[in-house]
């Protein structure tokens, strides 16, 4: 086994210096060394995107990067998105739009969505779908995820009623 290497990484606004094996993946470093278990692993092949984080503000799949490659960089995980106890707009939007069910893809989806909106603040529905192509969800069928991202782009996310303003639009009275 190769000798360890010392890295310094800023993760969610905290600087960490650690000795790591060169083969250690960034996601393993985050989860196993820093306890950042909000970032999840769903596949081994860079397909599912559950492990998406930001490296210097740009989305990367942390299962496809070595921890040593993050040396000297700034990493933001899902755990660094809320500020002072207030959810980030995308976090709020995913809640408001029922864009998560089991929640396993959610951290990666939110991180990728944030990156997508940074690149393209006013995407069309098709652009949102294309931008999320590298993130798999098995529960939602994507429609509400797309709606959540769109609501942030359109600035229509906030509502404190505790009730969805979009669900059940097509509901009608009973016909028995």
């Amino acid at each position: 086994m190769a000798s360890s290497k010392t890295i310094t990484v800023e993760v969610d606004d905290v600087r960490y210096t650690d000795d790591v094996e060169p083969r250690l993946l960034l996601v393993q470093y985050l989860r196993e060394r820093l306890g950042k278990t909000g970032t999840l692993v769903g596949c081994d092949t860079t397909n599912c995107g559950a492990c998406t984080v930001h490296l210097d503000g740009v989305s990367v799949k942390s299962c496809t990067m070595l921890a040593v490659q993050a040396d000297g960089h700034k990493v933001t995980t899902i755990e660094g998105m809320a500020q002072d106890g207030k959810l980030a707009p995308l976090q709020e939007a995913f809640h408001q739009c029922h864009a998560l069910q089991c929640g396993f893809c959610t951290p990666g989806m939110i991180m990728q969505s944030a990156s997508l909106l940074k690149e393209n603040p006013h995407p069309t529905e098709a652009e949102i779908r294309d931008g999320l192509e590298g993130n798999l969800c098995r529960c939602t069928g994507y429609q509400n995820i797309v709606a959540a991202v769109k609501s942030v782009a359109d600035g229509t996310v906030y509502d404190d009623s505790g009730v969805s303003t979009t669900a059940g639009e097509t509901e009608t009275a009973g016909v028995s």
Partner: peptide
């Protein structure tokens, strides 16, 4: 009959999840 937003969401959107591998 009300479209109540979920009680389950907050820990999942903030990364405070409790999946077994954690």
């Amino acid at each position: 009959g009300k479209a109540r937003l979920r009680k389950e969401d907050r820990h999942l959107v903030t990364g405070r999840s409790r999946f077994t591998d954690n």
